[in-house]
Amino acid sequence: MTASAQPAPLSAPLTVEFPFTRSLGPVQSAFLTGLRERTVLGARTAGGRVLVPPPEYDPGTAAELRELVEIAPAGTVTSWAWNPAPRRGQPLAAPFAWVLVRLDGADSGLLHALAAPGPEAVRTGARVRIRWAGRRTGAVTDIACFEPDTESDAGSAGERAGEPGADRADAPWPRPHAAAFADPVTAVTLPARLEYTHTPGRAQTRFLHALAERRILGERCPGCRKVYVPPRGACPTCGVATAEQAEVGPAGTVTTFCVVNIKAKNLDIEVPYVYAHIALDGAGLALHGRIGGIPYDEVRMGLRVEPVWTEGSRYPDHYRPTGEPDADYDTYKDLL
């Protein structure tokens, strides 16, 4: 069989989604619980700098940070960017500014969103304050966003905040704080969802198109002449492209197997069942499949099987015995 024209490329959505559970450790627990209580905590380093949000370890010295102090819920914009088309998951649905804010009493910037009517309303040095979320759970999103702080936006505060140490003498921030809260948050659940478009590649596309006609099409390596099924576009031992197509099967030999007694999530198969490696006739290696049409405890290495196709399924639903005599071990021992 020779190479045929490349069929139209296939693609399909691929969603990677999980609600990750994150245990916090003491510092992050205190900070996020603080947000729930509308309190902003920072970490004081041995050098006297106050970092917000509080890292667990000093970025400069790697020292463990444990001394927490309270910081003002208002501060000064140190940089900003206008986001005209917010993405899924970002703090605000309407266009907003990303801001780095140095809260009064802090020496580092906190990244969050600033609600503003347009980029002309935002500037570096602007005074902003936290707008708290209505429902707070102990997460960085308990800060709904920042909003302009009209009361203290006189410009002078901004300049003062720009001089390290100068603001410390006359400002009340940072304040001592015990960082102890009732019912502290010790873990957060943070769902994450990413959407991809998966394209299986040319070799697999050729294979999948043949599967739709219930043919199992491998590809032969021009070097070692082995037939790969499913084909992957390259012979993995020779490192060259495969393109010559070779139909294999439909019958094959069970080379090894296990009996599955534990129900896997997302699989609607009654246990026990047999999961087997099957070397289709003509293939250079085994593929995987379920064995049916025979009691699970009668399946054996060397059993001859053939695919059983069902409507609406891309792959054979399972393989069943052909009734031929078992294959001799020596004929398949290199195909386990």
Binding site: P53, W98, L111, A113, V140, T141, L190
Partner: peptide, 11 residues
């Protein structure tokens, strides 16, 4: 940072 930054999805 999965605690302080990633939940805001800053691209």
């Amino acid at each position: 940072d999965p605690y302080y930054l990633a939940p805001l999805w800053p691209d």
